[in-house]
Write a protein that binds this DNA or RNA. Structure first.
Lengths: 153, 153
DNA sequence: CCCACCGATGAAAACCTTTTTCAATGGACT
DNA sequence: AGTCCATTGAAAAAGGTTTTCATCGGTGGG
């Protein structure tokens, strides 16, 4: 029951299709494409759940056992800088990462299994204008996150 | 330029008026009211900015120099459990605390000085229903945070 | 008003995650 | 193939949070 106009980018681009895009982005920003980086990219690009550095490390070592945890941190830093991944904030854990999407989208997170879905169309302009008038703040950015239970949980 | 109906609870209750309420809440839940706790409560209740444990520790020690950092952590844990304080999540730091308010309200945070203001009236019901229909998730909770620049910055 | 109990405290140690350091490695371009 | 320098992994350092434990002191009962 997904209306086309509202389909999230993560649904539009298959997770495996994301990998060459990320690898190009790394190269185009002067970063070398190495085996340990490929192992990290592969895990994060293909996960529909937010993963923390240790989880990524454990999973990526299956494909590349020599991988060091430090490299996971360093690769995530670069992927975040290129907006290829983004950090997911949850009440108990703000150190998890998920593949990013283009444009302004928000997250819907399953509290049970951690599955993450993007959505857009928040229409907060009126609210933001009202809050600006009420408080004297200038609003430059906003976060909206929904928490719940996914269809499979 | 604050419209009355929308005034935040934090504006309605003066920060100093919050202290006896908090102290009662602690007692009513079987927690003792001690000097170190009072020192912590006073700092958090009176701050309009989100403070992290070390900042609270530094400020509270002015009034109570024997205070230990561990007590700050333990007191924050209890205040959070009683919903008297809440954690503030920001892109770079999710370990800061601010006095909580009753009911469902959201945060507006100054990116420059850290001043925090509550607001309400998000009217996200329609959006949430649409996202539920699109994704098959059941939404149980949401976070909305605005970031910007306060009137004094 | 004093006592006794047991929750609360502070210091130190343990823990866990993240960052820094550094010598060795190996992509990418010539 | 050779050179340069970004990248790597291991180890150490750093930082922040939690646990441990002996002592202290609020609070309620006598």
């Amino acid at each position: 029951m997904v209306s086309r106009a509202r389909t999230s980018t993560s649904a539009r681009m298959s997770t495996s299709a994301r990998i060459p895009v990320w690898e190009d982005a790394l190269r185009q920003h002067g970063y070398r494409l190495t085996a340990p980086r490929q192992a990290v990219v592969e895990i994060v690009a293909e996960s529909g759940r937010a993963l923390n550095p240790t989880e990524i490390y454990d999973r990526a070592r299956v494909a590349y056992p020599r991988l060091g945890l430090v490299t996971v941190y360093r690769t995530l830093e670069k992927l975040e800088e290129l907006h290829l991944v983004q950090r997911v904030h949850r009440p108990d854990n703000c150190q998890a990462f998920i593949a990013g999407v283009e444009g302004h989208q928000h997250l819907l997170i399953c509290q049970n299994c951690g599955r993450v879905q993007y959505f857009s169309g928040d229409q907060l302009e009126a609210l933001i204008q009202r809050v600006e008038a009420d408080t004297g703040y200038q609003v430059h950015d906003h976060w909206l996150q929904l928490f719940g239970k996914c269809g499979e949980c």
